[in-house]
Amino acid sequence: MSEFKEPQNDEEMEFEALKPSELASGKSTSRRIPIPPHRLTPLKKDWLKIYTPLVEHLKLQIRMNLKKKSIDLKTSEETEDIGAIQKAADFIKAYNLGFDINDAISLLRLDDLYIDTFEIKDVKTLSGDNLSRAIGRIVGKDGKTKFTIENTSRTRIVVADTKIHILGSFQNIKIARDAIVHLILGSSPGKVYSKLRTISTRMKERF
């Protein structure tokens, strides 16, 4: 019986990444992502931008399934990253939610990005004009408030009816979400801008 030797340094503890074929006994992995009807037209327009990074960089097989109204993903023998199909699924889901294609692609390049989704009613039950005014406060005139929150928190925000989707790192999502929650609860954009300026100053001092 061979004796277990304790590694002497970090280099001895490094392992080569497993390929999907090694992890799943050579079987390919597939995923089907449904496409909402209102995103089909933009999808066709942006298809080349969606197709290229998934095939050329993640080495996945992909097809647009118009009959099922979905995008079908599949690993191939060339796929090197075992997390490739999950990254691709997150990227397509972000696009489905309404994020710009270039913002959604960042999910493929960076590992610490997430999407947080919540509804206005999760914060406060509003209806009619009160709900419309809350959405108006979040977006602001000509999108100014949303743009300010995005720039300060380094996130991207999609307001889809009563749902709010935020793309960013965990810490930055919290900053954006707190600002939006204050707006939903009735704070004026001016007060939120003031808090965001304070946060922005702290972030600059930290880095």
Rank of each mutant, 00 (worst) to 15 (best):
M1H: 13
M1E: 02
S2R: 12
S2I: 08
F4M: 03
E6G: 00
P7V: 02
P7D: 09
N9T: 11
E11Y: 14
E11W: 09
M13H: 07
F15K: 09
F15P: 02
L18Q: 13
L18C: 11
K19W: 05
L23C: 10
S28L: 04
S28E: 08
S28N: 13
R32H: 05
P34L: 13
L40V: 15
L40C: 08
L40K: 15
T41K: 15
P42S: 11
P42K: 13
P42M: 10
L43K: 11
K44L: 13
K44V: 12
K45N: 09
D46F: 11
D46C: 05
Y51C: 03
T52G: 07
P53V: 11
L54Y: 07
R63L: 12
M64F: 15
N65P: 09
L66P: 00
L66E: 15
K69H: 07
K69Y: 05
I71E: 08
I71F: 07
L73K: 08
L73Q: 06
L73H: 11
K74Y: 03
K74P: 03
K74D: 14
T75Y: 13
E77W: 01
E78D: 14
T79W: 06
E80Y: 04
I82Q: 12
A84Q: 02
A84V: 02
Q86S: 14
K93L: 11
K93I: 10
Y95W: 06
Y95M: 03
Y95E: 01
L97H: 06
F99A: 13
F99L: 12
F99M: 12
F99S: 11
I101K: 08
S106V: 11
L107F: 10
L108Y: 10
R109H: 10
R109T: 10
L110R: 15
L110H: 14
D111Y: 05
D112T: 06
Y114P: 03
I115H: 04
D116L: 01
T117C: 05
T117A: 08
T117H: 07
K121I: 12
K121L: 07
K121R: 15
D122F: 03
D122S: 14
V123N: 04
T125R: 15
L126I: 10
S127Q: 12
D129W: 06
L131T: 02
L131P: 02
R133K: 15
R133D: 14
R133Y: 08
R133F: 07
I135W: 05
I135E: 01
I135N: 06
G136T: 05
R137F: 00
R137I: 05
V139I: 15
V139Y: 03
G140H: 04
G140N: 03
K144A: 12
K144D: 09
T145I: 04
K146T: 07
K146V: 08
K146D: 05
F147E: 15
F147C: 04
I149E: 00
I149G: 00
I149N: 01
N151T: 10
I157Y: 02
V159F: 01
A160M: 13
D161T: 01
T162L: 00
I166Y: 01
S169C: 01
S169H: 05
F170G: 02
F170H: 11
Q171V: 10
K174D: 14
A176S: 14
D178Y: 06
A179G: 07
A179Q: 08
I180W: 09
I180M: 03
I184H: 00
G186Q: 04
S187E: 06
P189C: 05
K191G: 04
V192L: 03
V192C: 00
S194H: 10
K195V: 08
K195W: 14
L196N: 04
R197T: 04
I199H: 07
M203Q: 15
